[in-house]
């Protein structure tokens, strides 16, 4: 029972970070109908940027986020303009999958060359401090990470619901053609949306770097988790991604705590298969539009 509760606490706290990563992923899908296989690589890129700022200037990874998000936003816009926009429209969804996979490989290669392939971790002064509440151990970093993820998700929510740009994004997600008819420049929304997805990856990357050691190949571990989360939440639904992130991370942490860490990876796939069997459109997805 103790292990179970400990697993739930850990899972919920980790779930916040996954929710942040997955929200960018699902946003990109919602706007462009592109499954971004480079999302994991962009998270790791964000982690490396935070790592470098920490090592070179002693900048705290949480404080580095404004810088890394801006850099990654630019990178995301560049990827969209250079590689995704030129694709022809008729087989775009197939090609875009492969193109984003190629972008993931490209980022992996660049990271391997720049930072070599040994594991790195960001060792802040508070990295090992923790509290004990009612006999359960809660590490400080995870709490901060959770709080920051909530903050970032809150900002994203405000951006999507309270600004002109956000309204344009939501309109494009709902119905791209009508949005275009109403004068929304879909190309610009797509570029900025991809940038926004990359920016959330950067914020999540800072946090990821604090929580786990990482290397350039770590994005392979991330991508299947992110994809399961996005499918469970319903492709294109940011709220769904948040809920699904917490659900999936919690169940995986519970399996790790009660069964074995080796099998926790399997929970992602099990969740995915269950979703497809029971509710293929995901928790908050809609039928008849997009992928399914």
């Amino acid at each position: 029972m103790h292990a179970l509760v400990q697993g739930v606490i850990l899972g919920v706290l980790t779930g916040g970070v996954y929710a942040l990563m997955a929200s960018g992923q699902t946003l990109i899908f919602g706007i462009m109908k592109v499954v971004n296989l480079a999302q994991g690589a962009m998270v790791i890129m964000g982690a490396y940027l935070a790592y470098q700022l920490f090592v070179s200037f002693g900048l705290d990874p949480f404080l580095a986020i404004p810088i890394t998000t801006v850099v990654m936003f630019g990178l995301g816009v560049a990827v969209q303009l250079l590689f995704l926009r030129p694709l022809r429209r008729d087989d775009k969804s197939e090609l875009s999958l492969l193109v984003t996979f190629a972008v993931a490989l490209l980022l992996e290669g660049i990271m391997s060359v720049t930072w070599s392939t040994t594991y790195r971790s960001i060792n802040t002064s508070y990295a090992n401090s923790s509290w004990t509440v009612l006999g359960y151990q809660i590490t400080a970093v995870r709490v901060w990470a959770f709080a920051l993820s909530l903050l970032a998700l809150g900002l994203l929510f405000l951006l999507l619901n309270r600004t002109r740009f956000g309204r344009a994004v939501r309109a494009t997600v709902q119905n791209p053609e009508s949005a275009r008819l109403l004068g929304i420049e879909s190309d610009r929304v797509a570029a900025l949306g991809f940038g926004l997805g990359a920016a959330t990856a950067a914020a999540a990357g800072s946090v990821y770097g604090l929580l786990y050691p990482f290397y350039s190949g770590s994005h392979y571990d991330l991508i299947s988790r992110l994809l399961s989360i996005v499918v469970l939440g319903g492709l294109g639904s940011v709220g769904g991604a948040v809920v699904a992130g917490v659900i999936v991370a919690t169940s995986s942490a519970v399996v790790a705590a009660t069964v074995s860490p080796a099998w926790s990876e399997m929970t992602f796939f099990a969740v995915l298969i269950l979703v497809l069997l029971v509710r293929p459109q995901g928790l908050f997805g809609t039928v008849g539009r997009g992928a399914i």
Partner: peptide
């Protein structure tokens, strides 16, 4: 199971299967 879905999600399921087998 996976072919209940269309191209995008099918790719997602198959790539997740790949990582599961690797694990």
């Amino acid at each position: 199971i996976s072919m209940r879905t269309r191209a995008d999600v099918f790719a997602i399921v198959t790539i997740t299967f790949l990582f599961m087998i690797q694990t």
